[in-house]
């Protein structure tokens, strides 16, 4: 726009574009961009909700404190444990279910719907439903176990079992997403490929390994990465089923963020926890993409 004349002819058109964007840009700036910037700033201060407006810049102190904070390290360790357990369980579980539900079954649509239904339920309902199942004295699991003569389990009070219980609850709750996405990929594979392989004498396992798996690999990677990011942000089902216990063995990073920011009011430190989670997600996703890319080259 060098001359006034060009200005006149171009401005109204771009003004229209901005007008259409305004209903988005205003709340986006106020409730996304500004909090992102402000949160980054706060993470370098000692801001505290009880001392409003008295934040002092303290450089990287919050971040260096994170490294030596025992509770942070424990909750980040628990988060990683959850990720390591939960990502394979959901991706493989979703894959197996998708393969099963891709077969010509009777009432297939109805059966599929059952596995998707829990995805639509709110996290607090999921927590209550599973406490009702797993409670050591009143839960259904134990009365069922004891009726067939098996020992009673108290999974939620065993530090080494509680996270597995949460993982299985998460499988029940969230498997709908991997299931649907993988199912769609399976249905995009042309039937002719299988017919040709059958004529060549390939068995079911061989057909799965040489046709199905290579063709759905991109989708599997997509699901893997989405589940990975999602698992790092785990909160509701853990917080509401175990409360982070026993002995902090299931407290996850977002729960620590919540407690630090909204129960201890340490705003600056909580902001640093949030950014540290994001950084770890970024690094892990990048590393995973690099590894997976290399694996695919060798195939």
């Amino acid at each position: 726009m060098s001359t006034a004349e060009q200005n006149r002819s171009r401005w109204p058109k771009s003004l229209t574009g901005f007008l259409f964007l305004t209903p988005f840009l205003v709340p986006f700036a106020a409730f996304w961009l500004w909090p992102i910037a402000n949160g980054l700033y706060l993470s370098f201060t000692d801001a505290n909700m009880l001392r409003a407006g008295e934040a002092n810049a303290i450089g990287l102190e919050n971040y260096s404190q994170l490294l030596s904070d025992r509770v942070y390290r424990q909750s980040m360790g628990n988060t990683l444990l959850f990720v390591v357990e939960n990502v394979p369980v959901l991706v493989i579980g979703g894959l197996l279910l998708a393969v099963l539900l891709n077969e010509p079954l009777t009432a297939r649509a109805g059966i599929r719907a059952v596995f998707v239904a829990p995805y639509l339920i709110t996290g607090s309902a999921v927590a209550i439903i599973w406490q009702f199942v797993l409670d050591p004295s009143t839960g259904w699991l134990n009365s069922w176990l004891s009726s067939v003569g098996l020992p009673i389990q108290n999974v939620l009070s065993q530090p080494d079992q509680a996270m597995w219980a949460v993982t299985l609850i998460t499988l029940w709750w969230r498997v709908g997403f991997p299931l649907l996405v993988i199912l769609a990929a399976l249905q995009d594979i042309p039937q002719d490929l299988y017919d040709a392989a059958k004529i060549d004498g390939a068995g079911a396992v061989q057909r799965f390994r040489t046709i199905t798996l290579p063709l759905i690999t991109p989708v599997l990677i997509f699901v893997l990465i989405i589940r990975l990011i999602d698992s790092f942000k785990v909160f509701a089902q853990v917080y509401l089923v175990t409360g982070g216990g026993p002995f902090g063995s299931t407290r996850v990073a977002i729960q620590y963020l919540y407690e630090t920011g909204f129960l201890d009011f340490r705003t600056g430190y909580a902001a640093a926890i949030g950014w540290s989670v994001f950084l770890i997600i970024l690094v892990v996703t990048a590393v995973q993409l690099l590894i997976l890319r290399r694996v695919r080259i060798y195939e």
Binding site: A30, F31, W32, L33, W34, P35, I36, N38, G39, L42, M49, I229, F232, K233, F235, I254, L257, Y258, G261, F262, T267, A270, A271, G274, W275, V277, F278, I281, L282
Partner: peptide, 17 residues
């Protein structure tokens, strides 16, 4: 780019806003 940032990261500053 902002889509990559998890909501949890802006929890505290959004509350303050």
């Amino acid at each position: 780019g902002t889509m990559m940032i998890p909501f949890e990261v802006i929890l505290v500053p959004l509350f303050l806003q």
